[in-house]
């Protein structure tokens, strides 16, 4: 035993200047990441952005070539293997098809040392909605069932940091709800969750914070609301009681651009406008004053997706210069 000075950090993950190279390929370049306990943090980026590499570093599957990584208060050194309390999967959950769902989990649970925190297998199966197929071999499982069993396997160790790569991939709406509820429940208990997804709606539904990667670099990291603020004008879809009158009101409102959507919108009662949020705030009361009922107002593309596309395209353009 000896006395040492450690930096007290509330972070489940604290990465500074992480870099990882595969030969000449730069997978990660100066990545900073902070994830607080109880936070569900999304990692998003185009293909090849370095998401899986970053998740692999958190899981101890690889070591960074540069930078520092602290996971659950422990510095991750040069050796493979993450600190205890970290669990999850990348690419796809690892399951053994010759074993039943229950035996897959039981075999993993048996790896735990006596006294180590281990979740109850029946509870986990129920949590992810696989109780009915608990004694079926994993060989016949659909992608969604495999995802859910993979999540259950990751939860065996009662992790304090859960790392998941595309956890909602292949899930039906009911399965997706199971996963969302499970992750929300974990976060409420203080578990930090880092997940990647290509589905912006999933990220918006689950994550409080996101990090956007492009070509191995962080182009945004922070709360979702802050990301939406970065958007300029967005396209919005309006459904009203009188399309022609609404079009006229929109055209007369400053800052609102009515888009010609003839031929592209199957519904002729839909009006598409391009505007800032502040201009929309002006348009809505005007429509009401004109006696036009506003039945629906939604962004054509989600603010997160818009910001994501804008940031990654901007980064790609800068990189190509």
């Amino acid at each position: 035993m000896r006395t040492q000075e450690v930096e007290s950090s509330p972070c489940a993950v604290r990465a500074r200047g992480l870099a990882k190279f595969f030969g000449d390929v730069v997978a990660l370049d100066g990545v900073d990441l902070d994830v607080a306990p109880g936070q569900i943090h999304g990692i998003v980026g185009p293909n090849g952005a370095g998401k899986t590499t970053l998740l692999g570093l958190l899981l101890g599957l690889a070591v960074a070539d540069r930078g520092s990584l602290e996971v659950l208060g422990s510095s991750v050194g040069r050796a493979l293997a993450a600190p205890d309390g970290v669990s999850g999967f990348v690419d796809a959950p690892g399951l053994y098809p010759a074993l039943t769902a229950r035996k897959n989990l039981a075999a993993l649970a048996a790896l735990r040392a006596p006294g180590a925190p281990t979740a109850d297998i029946d509870d986990l199966l129920e949590q992810v909605g696989l109780t009915d197929v608990a004694d079926d071999r994993a060989r016949g499982f659909s992608l969604g069932m495999r995802q859910r069993l993979g999540l259950a396997a990751a939860l065996i160790t009662r992790p304090r940091l859960l790392v998941l790569d595309e956890p909602a991939n292949g899930l039906d709406p009911a399965g997706k709800r199971h996963v969302h509820e499970t992750l929300a429940g974990l976060a409420a208990q203080g578990t930090a969750v880092v997940l990647s997804s290509h589905r912006m709606d999933d990220l918006e539904a689950m994550c409080s914070d996101i990090t956007i990667l492009a070509v191995g670099r962080v182009v945004f990291s922070g709360p979702l609301g802050k990301l939406a603020d970065r958007n300029g004008e967005l396209d919005y879809r309006l459904v009203t009681s009188d399309i022609e009158a609404a079009r006229q009101v929109a055209a007369d409102t400053g800052g609102i651009q009515v888009l010609d959507t003839a031929g592209s919108q199957p519904d002729r009662d839909v009006l598409v406008v391009r505007a800032l949020v502040s201009d929309l705030d002006e348009l809505v009361p005007r429509l009401v004053h004109a006696g036009i009922a506003l039945r629906e107002l939604t962004p054509v593309v989600s603010p997160l997706e818009s910001a994501f596309l804008a940031l990654t395209e901007q980064h790609a353009q800068e990189s190509s210069r």
Binding site: M1, R2, T3, E5, V6, E7, G60, S74, A81, D84
Partner: peptide, 20 residues
């Protein structure tokens, strides 16, 4: 914030590996 802690460094850094 920086605090002083009495810690066995090997305990802090070592992952809990599974026995052979």
């Amino acid at each position: 914030m920086t605090v002083t802690a009495t810690t066995d460094p090997s305990e802090l850094l070592a992952p809990r590996t599974v026995s052979v």
